[in-house]
Design a protein around this nucleic acid. Structure first.
Lengths: 226, 226
DNA sequence: CCAAAGAATATTGAATTCATAATATTTTTT
DNA sequence: AAAAAATATTATGAATTCAATATTCTTTGG
């Protein structure tokens, strides 16, 4: 039962702007010019402005009354807050997943897990991340809570700019893999409480990585013009 | 430092529509006519449509391409999902609050707690709910996580229609008050883990109340036209 | 009388236009 | 020459207009 995705112009535009932000083509704190984007996308201001309203609600940009929009600055505090939330949600997904997940789904995740280990051993960072993402997504799906998945996806969007940094150190990487070993064990025992706990701690490590990567700008800079 | 609240027309309209939904003046599943609401609010379609986009993102309505908007139906499943999420967020707020809360804030919450007990003893349901809400809000504020507060507020909005049912039984009410006693104790001990646990369980009880109140329509009805 | 096809109507999607507020530029004054 | 005031320009907020799609009503054939 695949969801029919509605393709409104405003939604299309919102996604495209989201991509621009994610890939840094629209810099943090940068003023968003309506006219400029209208010409870029070849649409009128009406759907573009609707897209901006949506993006503001989703937390990617902020609207200043009568003064347009700008890309939100990711301060360390904001990223930390977001990761705390994501950790709580991942924890919940783990608890729920253990209640509802089928044996077949566990087997699928086990396969993904083994695949991920191979990529780890071969030091294939990008494919490792991809399979890693699939594992977490599978657990989220097993939670059978659409809203949870939606919220997690939203939070993920907000910090996508700093995630999956290439500067991951060996120490953190091996720790992450160890976390995943424990996760698999907890999942196969269907120990929700434990899986939840592991998932929470796992994400905390990711925050440390993001921090160390130095992708996040200094708070003092950001607070000044916020 | 109080936040300057921007008053755009679209935001105003979105809030008004939100109120209509909350108070049942726009029924679940009801089709939303743009023209009708335009006339009601005395605004043009542009800001109204922007408001609809935002409300859809916030999860209060759903947009059907080329077929307008309608109020989301609250199925039991949706409410359960929402409460699970809120419970996780409340749990997180408890853990964080214990890390950051000041003695003065704890004292404030203690005062609110005592006030709530008085309303409980006097069987003043509305004022009891109001103070109850203030306590939970104070703990959320003490978490020092703006995003958490924002997300919680959003989730709360979604299920406002079924919350605070007047049909609360004596059993559940006394259980809730007992929960609050335990919460105060955990908070004053600054035991984050414990407070988080209590807050999670506390909200589960609320779901039972909402369910028993019978405000939520049967899923089978809702699934049919979703 | 019922069903299907087509016309008429109403509603939504998007572009354009008008109004107003913010910003940049020029002019004036000291 | 620098600061302040006035004006011009630009960008945003909102209403209107035009186009595309859905819905309803009417007609026609079985």
């Amino acid at each position: 039962m695949t969801k029919i995705l509605q393709r409104n112009l405003y939604r299309e535009v919102a996604d495209r702007i989201g991509d621009l932000i994610e890939h840094g083509e629209l810099a943090p704190g940068e003023r968003i010019s309506e006219k400029q984007l209208c010409e870029k996308f070849g649409v009128s201001r009406t759907p573009l402005r609707e897209a901006l309203k949506v993006l503001a609600t989703e937390g990617l940009i902020e609207l200043l009354p009568n003064r347009g929009a700008r890309v939100v600055r990711l301060t360390f505090k904001k990223v930390k807050d977001t990761y705390d939330l994501m950790a709580a949600l991942e924890g919940l997904s783990g608890e729920l997943a253990c209640q509802y997940i089928s044996d077949a789904e566990i087997a699928d995740i086990r396969r993904l897990h083994e695949e991920m280990l191979t990529h780890y051993r071969n030091r294939e960072l990008m494919t490792y991340f991809e399979v890693n993402r699939q594992i977490h997504e599978s657990i989220l799906a097993a939670s059978r809570n659409d809203l949870l998945q939606e919220m997690y996806s939203n939070l993920s969007q907000r910090v996508k700019r700093v995630r999956y940094s290439k500067k991951m150190t060996q120490t953190f990487w091996s720790q992450a893999v160890q976390d995943h070993e424990n996760m698999m064990a907890a999942l196969e025992k269907r120990d929700g409480r434990l899986l939840g706990q592991i998932l929470r701690d796992h994400l905390c490590n990711k925050l440390e990585v993001a921090t160390l990567a130095g992708v996040i700008e200094d708070d003092r800079l950001s607070v000044a013009n916020s």
